[in-house]
């Protein structure tokens, strides 16, 4: 893994060498503010917390994360640079992880730039900063899970638009697997244990648990397993894809 930092550095640098990073960050901040203040009614709730802000994060990520993840591998496959990258003396795991971490840190930077809001609520009132910190952590973990799914979808195609749409669909499914709407499809013909398992795959359920300030080890583990699992799948897909 000694070459992972080199790949990470290049990938992260590549976000900032084009307008992509700045456009993304600015729009992310604008949209998250609109959600919080206009739609969420940040002031109207009259509470000094960031609940309304975090409530919209799954929705934000549903569109913003696929926009980041779509180019991770699709662009390499299209331009043929995947061949260059994977004939350099690196392991496939280093490439997959290096790219993922760079994208994840990039989203983390965008997330960090929302912290003036945190300062604001502290100025306005006396919020539970533990809950806010846990929410930030949960939010970042959730973005990582979305991103790992996006990484895998991006590896299946050399078309970024297809990667984008596939990722949105997949993220959508994983957001709502816990909801009755989706569960009713499985209820009745699948064993109850399996339905429970599907329900427990819901990203939203785990995120909501963390953002209530309950840092349960199982919720953290869920996100980590999601990331590891989808990144592992990414490596398998690339291995298959390069043969074709």
């Amino acid at each position: 893994m000694n070459r992972l930092p080199i790949i990470f550095k290049r990938e992260l640098g590549s976000y900032f060498s084009t307008p992509l990073a700045y456009v993304f960050i600015v729009i992310f901040l604008i949209v998250s503010s609109i959600f919080t203040f206009n739609i969420g009614g940040f002031y109207e709730t009259g509470q000094a917390d960031l609940q309304v802000f975090f409530n919209f994060h799954p929705w934000l990520y549903l569109f913003f994360v696929p926009a980041i993840s779509m180019r991770l591998w699709a662009e390499e496959l299209r331009a043929g640079t995947v061949e260059l990258l994977l004939t350099l003396p690196i392991k496939l795991s280093e490439a997959v992880l290096g790219k993922f971490l760079a994208a994840w840190v990039f989203i983390g930077i965008a997330l960090l730039l929302t912290t003036p809001l945190w300062v604001t609520v502290n100025y306005l009132g006396d919020p539970d900063n533990g809950i806010i910190l846990a929410s930030y952590l949960g939010s970042w973990l959730m973005s990582g899970a979305f991103l790992a799914m996006g990484s895998c979808m991006s590896a299946t195609t050399h078309n970024q638009v297809i990667a984008f749409i596939l990722t949105i669909s997949l993220c959508f499914i994983f957001m709502f697997t816990g909801f009755p709407m989706i569960l009713s499809v499985f209820n009745g013909w699948l064993p109850a244990a399996l339905v429970d398992m599907i329900a427990s795959m819901s990203l939203l359920t785990h995120f909501n648990a963390i953002s209530r300030g309950v840092l349960d080890f199982r919720d953290l583990l869920f996100f980590i397993i999601m990331m590891v699992g989808w990144l592992f799948a990414t490596a398998i897909v690339i291995e298959k894809k390069k043969a074709g």
Binding site: R10, S14, S17, T18, A79, G80, T81, E83, L84, T87, L88, P89, I90, K91
Partner: peptide
């Protein structure tokens, strides 16, 4: 594979490179 790759210099077809660098 890794040791072999260290010995090789390779120019793939079409000379791909990351265009934004």
């Amino acid at each position: 594979g890794l040791k072999a790759k260290e010995m090789i210099g390779y120019l793939p077809e079409g000379a791909p490179a990351w265009g934004d660098m």
